[in-house]
Structures are given as structure tokens and as C-alpha cells.
Design a binder for these strands. Structure first.
Lengths: 331, 331
DNA sequence: ACCGACCTTGTTACCGGTAACATAATAGTG
DNA sequence: CACTATTATGTTACCGGTAACAAGGTCGGT
């Protein structure tokens, strides 16, 4: 019942040639005589030929696709990064194979195995924590790897991103410079980046002889978690005069809660977020945030990866695209 | 230099068997004698064998992957849908191949060709407008197709979603029921769904003998577009007493602008959005919105697609998962 | 001791492109 | 016109799994 999809042979049969000639005609038309060429093209059109990457994938072990592993697709940060990756990779003829692993190294390992089984030509990873088996697989696969979002630690091969520790340090320092003394850190999830931001927060507080206080939620980041954490601060740390949030979702959620509670921002409470997402930048007052170059990171990562795939392998390369402190109207 | 990745033959060489035996051992261990089995497993571990889907893909033309085409990855709506798809497909052993096409049917066509060249076993499409060539390719590929997000028109094969026209009609009717008379429609982009919502808006206004007015922006949806459109309303249609926005981004942006301009919501201006995203549901007042079951749509689409792939083909099937009108605090 | 059932392993061929090489047809040159 | 250069097409083999079939080995029953 199910009709097989047309192959080169089907076209060849129609025009009385071999599939080799058809193959040549489709990839280098000028090497085939004009009459035959025209008949081949019209036959291809007629049977509805669709190229098939499977043989290439098998015989040359190359897929013209790159694997991208992100912890979450609903996290706007990674959506932006992916857009950047594709902006560079797609025009270069590379297809993206996306997987997400919900911040779990074990799931990352499984997703990685799956991607490798499709013979991806390169991999972009969004984390720096990998299982032993993951590292092993990457090694035996022998393909280029680029890690993104974190330039703080030495990379497997190459890394593109910014320094989370320094970014957090700078933002918190700015809050302190503006007179805040009891700034509290709000974290969600326990991924590497959240920890690094907390570390930068710690360093900044201690550099000014202030006492760091961190509040965490194990839930995934959301506005409502921000609201909940702010309520907790009001009851447990009423003396707080500022919060530094691990991302904008939490910060905006906390701001909404301040509105509800009638707390003046920034008068009574300073609020800073991370990443500079649209909501925070569109609302009034504008949310103070660390603006990260997410799309640029995606593009640079794709560029570095394709360069490696095409031969040049600048291993140990770290591209730091920096960040910008936006003080907005909430400091 | 670049070492090839290990194959079954490499394992076979180590243990003095043929690759056929190794193949059997990995997929049905009990059919191989115990001693050999143990040696094969340890050899596989030693060389770091990673399964290879390429041969399967070639000889059985099946990839155990499904192609997913969405107009945009940064649009939260589709991020949610994708999460739903993967929640069902991943445990079933299917990998997702994602592509986005920026709302352009021509790009959709290219992405589709690319997906088909990887021999995906099925396709999930997010639009109902396809080029002739796209339709042709889908037909010759002979694989199951599920269209999502719109149950208003008859599907290619199967569709999963909700009815945009009815949803818009219901929301606008509710606004009118609450006393609004000069409701304006705010649209962005010109994709099918936006047009359908406008259609529902028209029907509701005309059913109450009210004059429909629609404002459009050609930019992609964002908070700032919502703000800009609200400003335009204030200058061009000062008599407006409500806006129905094609999505929550626009609605929230418009709300922010009302705040800045000191316009009372809902007192002077009612605001309704579409989709029920987190921001709108977390802010105060809660944004009125049409809550759509995005993740459930993804799951149902994946389920329907895999059912078709596995043989049962309930063609012409339309699964309507409905929607819910949340009147929030902005009506 | 012999036959067949079964258990284990091996052999062959195939999937669909294309690189590499071979060959046929045509054109060009002294 | 013989001979080489050039162009146009065909042939073969390969990539890495596995289905289908073949074959050698073991064991139990009579």
C-alpha cells in the first residue's frame, strides 16, 4: 500500500540512463548532455524526487547536521541561542538536531547518544557538567564540540559565552555602590550557572564586608516562584533592601509581588535580574538586569563549530562575548 | 588523524566473531552463548561503541525520528507544544528533528525538504498554508502528517488543536457582554491564526451590530509592539473602550503602556490576550486571555502521529482540545 | 548409534547514493 | 586519416547494520 519514495533509479528508468548519470546531472548539470539533462530534470519533477541523505550518512559518515543539546526549550535564553545557531548554520547547509534534557546529566547522556547515532557532524552543549560516559562518547565519536554560556572554566574543546561569576559580581557591586547593604540572592534550580551567579554575588558581598544571604527554590524558574520567594523574604528577612535574582523570570515575579504588597521599587526594594528579557525591558520601571548576548553566542558557537568541522581546529579556544549591566529603573 | 568511530566489526575482531553475532548479541543477548556474550559486552564497552542509525535509515528507510516544523522557536506557544510532543515521542524512542521557518511558506518548503531528506518517519506541521511543492513532497514521501493549532479547516490527514475563530468569538462576546462597545482588534504578523482570530472578532462585533476596527503591525509580536499599538489607538481611536489582542505579548505590552499613560484598566480600557502565558497570569491584575492547551496539543499530536506511523491511520481525524476563557482582572 | 530438534554462529545480499575507474563516442590536430 | 584529447556515460564497489537463510554442533530419545 505505502508507495516507496522515488529514487534516482526511478528517474534513470524513465529516461533510459543509469542512476549514476542522474546523480551527476543533479549535482553538476553541466557535465551531462543537454538533451538528457532536460529529460532527467523533467522526470525528476514528474516522479517528485526528494534527495536522500541516508547513503551519504552511511558511506561518508557525514550528515550535514549538528546536534544541539539545551537544558530546556521553554527557557527563553536557549530559544534565543538556538535562533542564533540556526542563523549561521542553516545558510551553511547544516540542519539542527535539537534535544533537551531538563537539566539532568543522565538525560543529557541519553540525548547525546541519540544525536551521535544520527552521525551528527558536530555538537553544541549548553552545560559544563557531563557524565563520564558522555565524555567518553564525545571522545570516541571524534567530532568537534562547542560548549556555550560559560567561559569561566576551561572548555572541552571550545567554549563561547560570558563569565557568569563576573557578571553577577558586577551587578551586585553596582547595587552596593548605589547604597544597598542587605541584598539577597534568589536562585532556582541547581544548575551550574545559577551556582556561578551565586558565587559572584558572594564575592561582591564579601568584598564589601556584607553578609550574603541566599534563598533557593527547587522549582523551575517562573514568575510565580519569584512572587513566592519575595513573600518569603518579607517574612524571614524584613530588613532586606535589594534582591539579585538568577534570572528575569524570578525578578519580574518578585516585582509583581512588590506591586501587590505596595512595596516601593526601587525606594524600599531594589530588584535586579539576569539576561535582559523582553518583559523586564518593556515594563515600567525597566528591570535592572545583566544583558547577555544570547543570539550572538549562538552564532559564534555555530561559526566555531563549523570551522572545526571543516578542518581548522583551534582547540582550547574560548570566545568571551561579555555582557552589559542595565541598571534600568529598579535599582 | 581523525579516528573513525567504532563499528560492530571492531568489536567482532576483538572477540573473534562476526559482526552478525555481535549485532545479535546487542539486540537479543539471550540468543548468544554466555561466554561470548560477556566478551562482546566488555569489548563494546572497551572500544566505546555507539549505535549507528545510518544503515537502518538506508535499508529500511526508517529513522525513528519525526520532523517538527514550527514558525518560530522564540514564540512561547510553540516551545510549549514542542515540550508536549517530546514528552510523548521521546519515551516511545523517537527523536525530534526541529525546524522553524519564520512564518514563510517558502522557507517551510525548504525545511520540509530537508527533513524529508533525513527520512523522518512522520511530520508535524504548525500551519495550514503550504506551497504546492510542499504538498507534493508530502504526498510522494508517503508518510503520516499531523497539523496542529487549528481545527477550523479540514486537515491534510489529521489535525490537533482548537478553533481560533470560535475562541476569538467567545472572548470578544464576553467583552461585549460586560458592556464594551468599542473593542478594537490588535494583530501582528499575517499568519493564518491571526487572521482567524480577527475573523472571530468580526463575527462577534457584527453579531452585536458593533463596528469592528482592526489595527495591525507587520513586526513580529513583542511587548513593544503592544505598547506602540496602544499609543496609536489613543491618538486615532480615543473612544475605544477595549482591545482584543492576537496574543498575550501584545496585550501585556499594551497594558504596560496603559500604566505609563495612567489609563485605568479595566475601568477605562479592557484588555484581552490570547494563549494565557505566564506573564499575563502572574501579573496583577491578571490578564484576560484565551487559555489554550498547548502542551496537550503537542502530546496529542505526537500520539496521533505515532499511531499512524505504527499502522493505524485514522485519516480525516480532527482532535479538538478546546480552550478556556479566562476573564482575569482586565475585563 | 542414529535422527531430528534445537541452539549457536556464519554467509550473503541489500538498502541508495557516489567515488573511482573504465569505456564509448566525439572532436581536434598534424 | 591515424591518433590523441575531450566529453559523455556506464560499472563496480563501498559505507554498516541486519533479514534471511545455511550450516555446524550438541543433546535427548528410542
Amino acid at each position: 500500500m505505502k508507495k516507496k519514495r522515488p529514487t534516482l533509479q526511478d528517474i534513470a528508468d524513465q529516461v533510459g540512463a543509469t542512476k549514476m548519470t542522474v546523480s551527476r546531472c543533479l549535482r553538476a548539470p553541466e557535465t551531462v548532455s543537454q538533451g538528457l539533462r532536460e529529460r532527467i530534470f523533467s522526470a525528476a519533477e514528474k516522479v517528485g524526487y526528494i534527495p536522500n541523505r541516508a547513503p551519504d550518512l552511511l558511506s561518508r559518515a557525514t550528515s550535514h547536521s549538528i546536534g544541539v543539546l539545551v537544558p530546556s526549550l521553554t527557557n527563553q535564553v536557549f530559544a534565543d541561542v538556538i535562533v542564533g545557531i540556526e542563523a549561521y548554520a542553516e545558510p551553511a547547509g547544516y540542519h539542527l538536531m535539537l534535544s533537551h534534557y531538563g537539566y539532568s546529566p543522565e538525560l543529557e547522556e541519553r540525548s547525546l547518544a541519540s544525536l551521535l547515532s544520527y552521525n551528527v557532524d558536530g555538537i553544541i552543549l549548553s552545560d559544563r557538567n557531563h557524565t563520564q560516559r558522555s565524555l567518553r562518547m564525545l571522545e570516541t565519536a571524534g567530532i568537534p564540540v562547542v560548549e556555550i554560556m560559560d567561559t569561566h572554566r576551561p572548555p572541552l574543546q571550545q567554549a563561547v559565552g560570558y563569565d557568569n561569576v563576573n557578571a553577577a559580581f558586577d551587578m551586585v557591586s553596582e547595587m552596593i555602590r548605589r547604597g544597598r547593604r542587605r541584598v539577597i540572592y534568589l536562585g532556582v534550580r541547581l544548575d551550574e550557572r545559577t551556582r556561578q551567579r551565586e558565587q559572584g554575588y558572594h564575592q561582591a558581598m564579601q568584598a564589601h564586608a556584607l553578609t550574603p544571604v541566599a534563598l533557593h527554590s527547587s522549582q523551575r524558574s517562573s514568575y510565580s516562584v519569584g512572587s513566592a520567594l519575595l513573600k518569603q523574604i518579607l517574612s524571614d528577612y524584613p530588613e532586606a533592601d535589594g534582591i539579585f535574582c538568577t534570572n528575569d523570570d524570578v525578578a519580574v515575579g518578585a516585582y509583581f509581588e512588590c506591586q501587590r504588597q505596595g512595596i516601593d521599587v526601587p525606594g524600599e526594594m531594589a530588584i535586579a535580574g539576569f539576561h535582559g528579557h523582553d518583559v523586564g525591558q518593556a515594563m515600567t520601571p525597566r528591570l535592572a538586569s545583566v544583558i547577555t548576548p544570547r543570539q550572538a553566542i549562538g552564532e559564534a558557537a555555530a561559526k566555531a563549530l563549523l570551522a572545526s568541522i571543516q578542518g581548522e581546529a583551534p582547540a582550547g579556544n574560548v570566545i568571551d562575548l561579555g555582557y552589559r549591566i542595565e541598571s534600568g529603573g529598579t535599582l
